[in-house]
Amino acid sequence: MSIQHFRVALIPFFAAFCLPVFAHPETLVKVKDAEDQLGARVGYIELDLNSGKILESFRPEERFPMMSTFKVLLCGAVLSRVDAGQEQLGRRIHYSQNDLVEYSPVTEKHLTDGMTVRELCSAAITMSDNTAANLLLTTIGGPKELTAFLHNMGDHVTRLDRWEPELNEAIPNDERDTTMPAAMATTLRKLLTGELLTLASRQQLIDWMEADKVAGPLLRSALPAGWFIADKSGAGERGSRGIIAALGPDGKPSRIVVIYTTGSQATMDERNRQIAEIGASLIKHW
């Protein structure tokens, strides 16, 4: 067993022997301040990774656009098919120029040779490549099948209805392509620590998230040296922004954090800054 596999296998073990965790309302004060600064709703939840206990939450059962955070769930569904012998990570998928959609920095470079399922998941999570996500959605049967996968996990809230990039439209009061912070946090925890996926697939999923290259201005910008984070960000229309993450000190994750916002007129930089400040408060009061 590799060191990384050992780390993920012992996530519940280490967490069980940690000192009790206590909620700190100071972080919620910052979440509410972010709402004021952005002029928009902000949803927040913080779960203990081992027990699933909610440590703090704000608007945990209000719907927010998922945006690209759905790509972690998508690759979880792909990995479940791999575990069941219905898919192979090494299978190569070929596609054409007509398949390319807006923001496809990886797939646009491989029109000639195609990409493997493993490479597509890596591109979808680490670079948020939209064509990679659409190609992977095709392998599982489309958005409705991802929703069905989530329902089978016990998540009857999260739903995907459309493809990239239309799913980022974020129309107010439109339930399409949305989740709730509580539902997303619980589902992410199941994917990373539950028995739904094999140990190898859980490790692969967290490795992809740990290698995320496009979430630097968010929670990662607030992390002290030595902290662990595996995350996936999302951005959408109407001032929408979000991030889902597993993080913790001492090089291992111990909490799940989900943050979503929508309806702001603020710039992307300002949305990023507010999420980073929430992260800084979380870490300060850990």
Rank of each mutant, 00 (worst) to 15 (best):
205 L>H: 01
275 I>K: 00
170 A>I: 09
135 L>T: 07
110 H>I: 05
182 A>G: 13
20 P>R: 13
117 V>N: 03
170 A>C: 13
14 F>Q: 03
244 I>S: 03
12 P>R: 05
40 A>D: 05
84 A>G: 13
222 A>R: 15
257 V>L: 09
226 G>P: 07
116 T>R: 06
257 V>R: 00
60 P>V: 12
164 E>M: 00
206 I>Y: 15
166 E>D: 14
204 Q>N: 14
246 A>L: 15
256 I>G: 02
282 L>Y: 03
175 E>S: 12
214 V>E: 05
90 G>Y: 12
244 I>G: 02
261 T>Q: 07
50 N>S: 13
261 T>R: 03
189 R>H: 13
44 Y>P: 00
177 D>R: 01
48 D>R: 04
156 H>C: 14
165 P>E: 06
21 V>S: 10
15 A>F: 15
97 Q>I: 14
105 P>V: 07
215 A>E: 04
115 M>E: 03
30 K>N: 07
129 D>A: 00
106 V>R: 07
257 V>I: 10
117 V>M: 10
111 L>Q: 09
262 T>L: 07
56 E>R: 09
107 T>N: 03
230 A>F: 02
81 R>C: 05
120 L>E: 01
156 H>A: 14
24 H>V: 14
191 L>M: 14
118 R>T: 14
157 V>R: 12
29 V>C: 13
37 Q>A: 14
105 P>L: 06
166 E>N: 13
215 A>I: 03
274 Q>G: 09
214 V>R: 06
104 S>W: 01
209 M>V: 01
37 Q>C: 11
91 R>L: 05
166 E>M: 14
83 D>I: 03
190 K>D: 15
178 T>C: 07
152 N>T: 14
7 R>C: 08
207 D>H: 09
111 L>V: 15
171 I>L: 15
218 L>P: 03
180 M>L: 09
230 A>S: 06
285 H>G: 09
19 L>A: 15
74 L>H: 00
76 G>L: 04
22 F>T: 06
140 I>P: 00
18 C>S: 11
203 Q>K: 12
272 N>E: 06
20 P>G: 06
66 M>A: 07
6 F>K: 11
18 C>Y: 06
148 A>D: 14
131 T>A: 11
257 V>N: 01
280 A>L: 11
286 W>S: 01
160 L>P: 04
181 P>E: 00
37 Q>R: 14
284 K>L: 13
180 M>V: 14
25 P>N: 09
226 G>E: 10
139 T>H: 10
106 V>H: 08
211 A>T: 10
60 P>L: 10
15 A>H: 08
105 P>W: 04
79 L>G: 02
123 A>K: 02
214 V>L: 07
231 D>W: 03
98 N>T: 15
12 P>Q: 10
16 A>H: 15
159 R>Q: 09
225 A>T: 15
47 L>K: 04
254 S>N: 13
30 K>D: 05
217 P>Y: 07
133 A>C: 05
172 P>M: 12
93 I>N: 03
142 G>Y: 02
148 A>Q: 14
275 I>Q: 01
77 A>W: 06
3 I>V: 08
11 I>T: 08
